[in-house]
Amino acid sequence: MSSVETPVAAPARSASEPPAPVAPGRPHAPDVRRQELAAFLRSRRERITPEQVGLPETGRRRTPGLRREEVAQLASVGVTWYTWLEQGRDIQVSGQVLASVARALLLDPNERAHLYTLAGAAVAAPGQECPSVTASVRRVLDQLSPLPACVLNSRYDLLAWNDSYRKLVGDVEALPFEERNIVWLLFTSEEFRSRFLEPDAAALTVAARLRAGLAEHVGDPAWKSLLSRLRQASPEFEAIWQRHDVAERGSGSKGFAHPVVGPMRMEFTNMWLGQRLGTRLVTYTPADEETEERLARLAAL
């Protein structure tokens, strides 16, 4: 007579945790993203000691770091659910629960963003907490005035800028975070487009550079969200996007049309701040004496 194993009751879930997924009938090989997620979670868990998170030491441990049940306890999620997440199971997870796991594992901003990407969850909109925009970078931006300068990532999100850049292109600080993106503004804001001498050419170039950058971020939720919004909001962008044109990011020249001081020709230079995120400080310098004089007038406004 065969014996029947009594199932163990699953641990209670927190209110924020999604319903526990049903175990698959037969194992399937996880995809590369889930394998990376599993390895990343294990590596972060194994580097933390109980003392670091206020847990009592319980004697000798067979493996370094925290146990899975301890991470689940700290994150207020079920042990079974967290175990399946760390095993790379194909389960759904919300940003709220990922935030709890990130806090439990003491992840820094770069690690937190990596966790969200691997889990296929939407990354928070870029803002003042971007790890590449340090206090030193902000000081450099201020010291560069009257030269306009800004910080962009590979997705062309505007992460920071100085007062000269704001005067040059308009009050970007008044925009919602999700609209502080060069590509979005060039294809959806007539006011922003009016600040360029050749707005159509600028739009073509930035779309081609975005297409080239996408190769390194295929499947990234933040990129997918931006592209979906652009393709729905702008038929012009959709038509350009279907051409599959690509262009490398680099230094060059650009023409601006300020409503008060007039047209200006500027040389722009990229200075890279973060290789993984493609974050760069972009500075604009006058291409001729006339622009230099008008830039001085711009600074005095």
Rank of each mutant, 00 (worst) to 15 (best):
A149E: 09
W223I: 00
W184L: 04
H244L: 11
S251Q: 10
A135E: 06
A160C: 12
G219S: 12
D163A: 15
E190T: 10
R155Q: 09
G262R: 02
D142A: 15
R138E: 13
D200W: 02
E198R: 15
H217C: 13
E179N: 12
N153K: 09
N162H: 05
E173P: 01
P148F: 02
R231L: 12
G262V: 05
Q143R: 14
D163N: 11
F268E: 06
A149C: 06
S228D: 10
A149S: 11
C150N: 03
N181K: 11
R265E: 11
A257H: 14
L230A: 05
V261F: 02
F177P: 09
A203K: 04
H258P: 09
S154K: 10
Y165M: 14
L144I: 05
G213I: 07
D171Q: 08
S253L: 00
S189W: 06
F268G: 07
S234K: 07
I240D: 01
L214V: 03
R243D: 04
D142W: 04
F177M: 08
E178D: 14
K167S: 13
S145N: 14
F177D: 10
T188F: 03
F187Y: 10
N153W: 05
V140K: 06
A247T: 08
Q232N: 14
N153D: 15
E267N: 15
A135P: 00
R138W: 13
R249E: 13
N162F: 10
G262I: 02
S251E: 07
K167W: 01
S194P: 05
A149T: 05
K254A: 09
L147W: 05
F177W: 00
A174E: 09
V137M: 10
R249F: 14
L230E: 04
W184C: 00
R211I: 04
E236D: 14
E173K: 04
G255S: 09
